[in-house]
Nucleic acid binder design. Structure first.
Lengths: 223, 223
DNA sequence: CCAAAAGTGTTGGTCTTACACCCATGC
DNA sequence: GCATGGGTGTAAGACCAACACTTTTGG
């Protein structure tokens, strides 16, 4: 049963979003430096209160920002954190979301609560407000797990990419090296990729570009 | 960020618990028939509002009932349901929990809101209140998934059991038959079980009893 | 011509699946 | 003695991990 009605709620609901991306061979999370409140000057995940007429997913998308700015290609609910002590300012239950997207220019702080926004490598986080360190850990764990049995990595890559870039992305997330031949064999055999007839030219031998056939979540044994 | 303070919350927080068990070769969920409210007379998952001083886990344990009655051996958070329309009586966000336990006698309705409690096979559910059908589906999906990579099945079995009973439990949950020889080979090879020097006597050849070495969650490749 | 990343196959081991017969007991 | 579930092994195929050399380009 879930009935509310009656007395006014004693517990508030917020949404916090951990946006992960891979940049510079590192898995990074988008953090905001808070201007005010009990954790003024500390870094925190972007978040905010759920409005009475919006769903949790809608609140998460709102916090994520307008499509085009910080737009993410994947959004999923992660876990709900509800320790009575997690917010010194009152009882707030926070529904955490995991989002995946391409690294944007750091600054798009259109939210006056935030002094600054930046991508921080998850391997060396600053002190975080609230229980956001646990949220980031949960987000990273979820991403690592899903890497093995879904195609969500598509949300972290541009429209076309080389197999080397794809492997780098996997390695950045998993934090370990993968065998190149086995990786290529496996990923090509899955049929998730479409080979383009273009190449990426760089300082060395050009690499064939690939694209994901479908850019939406599929459950499949990847690793 | 998650700060509350300021205005009174417009959104209430509840916890609903899907207790699953296996009985009579069927996966079942504990449902309560509601006495009052917008879904009077309908079946629903036991649930209730989160109190201002308790954690979400504590609320779930409270709703689960005193240890000894409906005591469950495993409890984990499942998903948070927050559609604005899910409760006709007001905006209630529900944090759903999955619990696993042994089948108890159906009746232990010490909660005056419930007319009746019963174990319903998840394969043929009655109409459920709220979005509880989706909650049960999520609970069953989670259990099925975790069967393959954890030892949580221990929470559904008594202290000692035969390999036949263990296999029946797996089959009831997965909804498909498993090869007996392969199943026994795999489970014995994992080292999760301790062979007891007792047997279960029945109308046929006695079966050796086993117990789980450790009755707490372990991540391991099971199936 | 050198450095650096791209590209490519084989082999051995492990794991999974499929499958059939005898055993011990209660009735 | 028969019905029923308990108990056991093997072989074929799939999958995974390990591993080294050649190619192509820019500078």
């Amino acid at each position: 049963m879930s009935t509310a009605a009656g007395a006014l709620p004693a517990v508030a609901v917020a949404v916090d979003v951990a946006v992960l991306t891979v940049h510079g061979r590192e898995l990074r999370v988008r953090l905001a430096r808070l201007r005010a409140g009990p954790f003024a000057d500390a870094w925190a995940l972007p978040g905010g209160r759920v409005r009475s007429e919006e769903s949790l997913d809608a609140a998460a998308r709102r916090i994520l920002g307008a499509p085009g700015r910080g737009s993410a290609l994947h959004l999923e609910q992660l876990y709900t954190f509800g320790s009575p002590q997690r917010d010194p300012a009152g009882r707030v239950v926070s529904v955490a979301y995991l989002a995946l997207g391409r690294p944007t220019r750091p600054p798009f702080a259109d939210d006056p609560r935030y002094a600054e926004l930046a991508w921080h490598p998850v391997a060396r986080l600053p002190a975080l407000a609230y229980d956001h360190r646990a949220v980031v850990r949960a987000a990273v764990d979820r991403l690592r797990a899903k890497l093995a049995y879904t195609n969500i990595v598509y949300a972290l890559l541009p429209g076309d990419f080389t197999l080397g870039e794809l492997q780098e992305t996997y390695e950045a997330i998993l934090g370990r090296a993968l065998d190149r031949r086995n990786f290529r064999k496996k990923l090509l055999s899955l049929g998730l990729l479409r080979r383009l007839d273009r190449v990426r030219r760089g300082p060395h031998r050009p690499a064939v570009l690939y694209a994901f056939r479908r850019r939406r979540p599929i459950v499949i044994d990847v690793l």
